[in-house]
Design a binder for these strands. Structure first.
Lengths: 128, 128
DNA sequence: ATTTTAGTTTACGTTTACGTAAAAGTCAAC
DNA sequence: GTTGACTTTTACGTAAACGTAAACTAAAAT
């Protein structure tokens, strides 16, 4: 398998190495270590990092993202665990759906405002 | 016309009065004052506050929201101003559109994961 | 009229999400 | 094999977005 170093990931996502280590501090990502202690990141780690950054763009806190990441943890085999995970996932899915609707409304409003401004500009150019 | 007090707005949006005053400190909202100095908020102020909170849910900083609010400022009458505003608005609209697409992808992924978990639960219940 | 309740300013405190610097070890290149 | 780039931990610093407390004034309620 192929690994990434911390600075490689940092460059790929245009973030600092400190940021990546901070996410590890908070328990969001867990790279393996070489014998000398250097961090090595798998493709899966990279995917998790991508997920974190996407969550951030949506205004989720690292704490919330941490919970969402646990959805991808395949180590939830018990029935109770599964049910809990599904319930949590449905909740988050609902939140995401609401945000999408909210954003689409915002988009429409912005489009209306823009149309209005364009019209005003037209009129100004007619005069001049 | 009808006015809201600061605590009324705070209750309506489930935020603290401190938060509302903070938004004023940052220049995001500008209520009028009574003779004795108490803040009074119009419907328009309320709408602005709503906008701020929505922006926050999407992960925009107060600084960004401040800029977006200026879009609603009707005092941009000059042609250069109009053009600048339109350009900025188009930029923000693009960002919003990208976020929507991003969120929809997240939604699909979450749905796939949930389907997988539901399937596993089914199998568990089949055994038991 | 006098308690509550609500509002004001000022100012220091706190949490989140990192930035930055220091001191030391390690890897890659020449 | 030594220079230079990279990595590690530890630790203090910081900006944003408020929380909280004090000291005071105004409004509402009894």
């Amino acid at each position: 398998m192929n690994y990434y170093t911390i600075s490689q990931l940092a460059e790929q996502f245009d973030i600092s190495t400190r940021t990546i280590r901070y996410y590890e501090e908070r328990g969001l990502i867990s790279p393996i270590r070489t014998e000398s202690g250097q961090r090595l990141y798998t493709k899966k780690d990279r995917a998790v990092l991508k997920l974190i950054l996407r969550g951030k763009r949506f205004g989720f806190s690292l704490e919330e993202i941490h919970e969402m990441i646990s959805l991808f943890d395949n180590d939830r085999t018990g029935r109770k665990q599964l049910e809990k995970t599904i319930a949590y996932g449905e909740q988050k899915l609902k939140e995401v759906t609401e945000r999408i609707e909210d954003l689409m409304q915002l988009k429409q409003e912005m489009e209306a405002i823009l149309a209005d401004f364009r019209e005003r500009l037209q009129k100004l150019e007619g005069i001049e």
